[in-house]
Amino acid sequence: MYALSSSLVRSPALRQGLQKAAANRQVSLKVVSVGSTIKDESFFEKNERLGRQMSPHLTIYKPQLTSMLSIMHRGTGMAMGVGVWSLGIGALIASQDISHYVTMVEGLQLSAASLTAIKFIIAYPFGYHAANGIRHLLWDTGRFLKIKEVYSTGYVMVATSVVLTAILALL
């Protein structure tokens, strides 16, 4: 390293200083066993020993529209995934065809309001996820990213998801 450094230094005084520093430099190595370097303490024990406080947790934050919409987006995505998997597996293991199960539901003689409510609950994850997905696509274009716009598009998205879901439930 000294040879490279001294060749790059044009000042004779600085070059002489580098030579003296290199001559006085001492390096010593200490051999330690591997067992002494491995700690058996957990992450939390280490933080306690070092006096580090626990990071803020979700329980201390006031819920915000943005965080609630994000949680709902993930929840509706998981609900749709579970629903699709359930329908697929159910179709594979069902002993009857779909008309048999439709007849069973018709036999329950549910009111029109009850059927609409059930269809609304089933359709809501799709309506919400689709509306919020469009909002995210708009964000990907660089639009509506100011905090006021994020909140206003959030409220518009919630209203749109309810309207979309109501349309699907009334079909």
Rank of each mutant, 00 (worst) to 15 (best):
H136Y: 02
K119P: 01
A169V: 09
F144R: 07
K46R: 15
I98N: 08
T76Y: 00
P56Q: 04
Y124Q: 00
I98C: 13
S114N: 12
R15D: 02
Q26Y: 03
Y2G: 00
L137I: 09
M157E: 11
Q109S: 04
Y61N: 05
I98M: 12
L69R: 03
W85L: 09
Y128L: 07
G154R: 07
T116W: 07
A3M: 14
S111P: 10
T66M: 02
H57A: 08
D140C: 07
F144V: 07
V32H: 14
V158Y: 01
Q19C: 04
Y128C: 03
I38N: 12
N132T: 04
H73W: 09
V105K: 06
V31Y: 09
S111M: 09
V84R: 02
I122C: 01
V156Y: 07
Q109K: 08
S99L: 11
T103F: 07
G90D: 06
P63W: 08
I89H: 12
E48W: 00
R74C: 01
I71H: 02
M54Q: 14
F44D: 15
L29V: 13
P125S: 06
G133M: 02
I60S: 15
V31R: 11
P63I: 11
V34Q: 10
S67W: 03
L29Y: 11
V162S: 00
A23K: 08
G81H: 10
L171P: 10
A159G: 10
L110V: 06
S152V: 15
I89F: 05
A91K: 05
V82Q: 06
S28T: 14
V156F: 09
Y151A: 12
L4C: 08
K62C: 12
V34W: 11
V162M: 07
S11F: 08
A3W: 08
I93F: 07
L14M: 13
M68Q: 06
G81A: 09
I122Y: 00
L29T: 15
S99A: 14
L92F: 10
M72L: 15
V156L: 15
L8E: 14
G51A: 10
I60Y: 13
I93H: 06
F43D: 13
G154N: 14
R10T: 15
L18D: 02
R135A: 01
L58W: 11
S7A: 14
A130P: 04
L170T: 13
I122S: 03
G83C: 05
R10Y: 00
S33M: 12
